[in-house]
Computed example of a mutant assay.
Amino acid sequence: MTIRVTVWGENVHEQENEIVAGIYPKGMHTTIADALNRDSGVSASTVVMQDTDHGITPEKLAETDVLIWWGHKAHGEVSDAVVERVANAVWSGMGAIFLHSAHFSKPFKRLMGTPCNLSWREAGERERLWLTSRNHPIAAGLPDHFELENEEMYGEPFGVPEPLETVFVSWFAGGEVFRSGLTYKRGAGNVFYFRPGHETYPTYHDANVQRVILNAVKWAYNPAARIADPSAAPNVPVEKALEPIVERGPKLHQDGEEGYR
């Protein structure tokens, strides 16, 4: 079955910054989607913040198996109604992948329930990403570590809940380390956060980064039917009481030996 992916792009830096436009002439979202579409098992499309409902309509979410989100400059401009729509879709079983500055996006913070804060430095430093869970599906086909020559530094402490697994940790030339690949379960949905992806560097053209995102899509995909209303309590009356539990006790057999009924 083909995994249907929607790549959401804030699409602001690409319009305002010549450096970003030069690296991603069709937008970061298109670069990510094009890389995914090279896999025959994935069908990736794109939406941007400037679309109606930021591109996140109920109809679009209904046909999305995995949502990828990149945001940075305009987190506050994302509609709260759209945030709830995304959260409900994840709770219902849609997979979600949040990239780089999306750690501070409204949907990610809503799902994590924490500030999601961190320290950062934009200095074009070398980043080395180490596998910390070698057998995890998201790490499939990757070396023990790989490097990005220029990236923005993110440093601990990272204000997120304890993850299910930490798949990658990063070391930066300035000496900091950071938990760069974290998995979560939210309701019926699988969530992955992946740190690299500052807009002024060609991170999403990197083959290893593309491999991580593809692996994450396959990991996050949930083939089960969506839960119709994940926030509703069942509120179903029980019409018939359960049979009382009969306490078992010893009894004597005819031959006098003790047994249990």
Rank of each mutant, 00 (worst) to 15 (best):
Q254Y: 09
V78I: 14
G95A: 01
W130C: 12
Q254V: 09
M49T: 09
A123C: 08
V167S: 04
E10K: 06
G27S: 10
L182N: 06
A123N: 12
Y260R: 10
V86K: 06
I56K: 03
K251F: 13
H29K: 10
E16R: 11
G124V: 07
V20D: 03
K109Y: 01
I245S: 14
H100R: 00
F192C: 04
S180I: 05
E10M: 08
V90G: 07
A21W: 04
H54K: 07
G22C: 02
A188S: 11
D65S: 03
V82N: 13
H145Y: 15
P230V: 10
D51K: 08
Y260S: 12
N88T: 14
G27C: 11
D206V: 05
K185M: 15
K185S: 15
Y154T: 02
D65W: 01
N88G: 15
A207Y: 01
H253C: 13
G27V: 09
P157A: 05
A89K: 07
V42G: 02
L142F: 00
Y154S: 01
V90Q: 07
A102F: 00
Y204G: 05
R226H: 07
D206S: 05
S92G: 15
V82K: 11
T183K: 11
L142Y: 03
I213S: 01
A33Q: 11
V191D: 01
H100V: 02
V12R: 06
D206Q: 05
L67N: 01
M153L: 10
E176K: 02
L131F: 10
P234Q: 12
L61D: 02
G22S: 09
V78E: 15
T183C: 15
V47S: 07
D80A: 11
R261N: 14
T166C: 14
G187D: 08
H253E: 13
G22L: 04
E239R: 12
K240H: 13
E77S: 13
G9S: 10
I97V: 11
R121S: 14
G22N: 10
P237I: 10
E243T: 14
D206E: 12
E176P: 01
P163T: 09
I32P: 04
S101H: 09
G259N: 10
E125G: 00
G197Q: 02
Q50P: 00
T52A: 15
E151K: 02
N235F: 11
Y201S: 04
V191P: 00
I97W: 04
S45G: 15
A44M: 00
R4C: 07
D255L: 07
A44S: 03
L214P: 00
T132Y: 08
I68Y: 00
K218P: 01
W8S: 06
N37S: 11
S92I: 08
M94I: 06
I213Y: 03
L142A: 04
R128M: 15
H54G: 14
S231G: 08
H136L: 07
N150R: 14
L164W: 03
N88E: 14
E258N: 12
V217Y: 00
H13N: 12
D206H: 15
A81Q: 12
Q15R: 09
D144Y: 12
V7F: 05
W91Y: 13
P157Q: 05
P163W: 07
G9I: 08
G76F: 08
K240I: 13
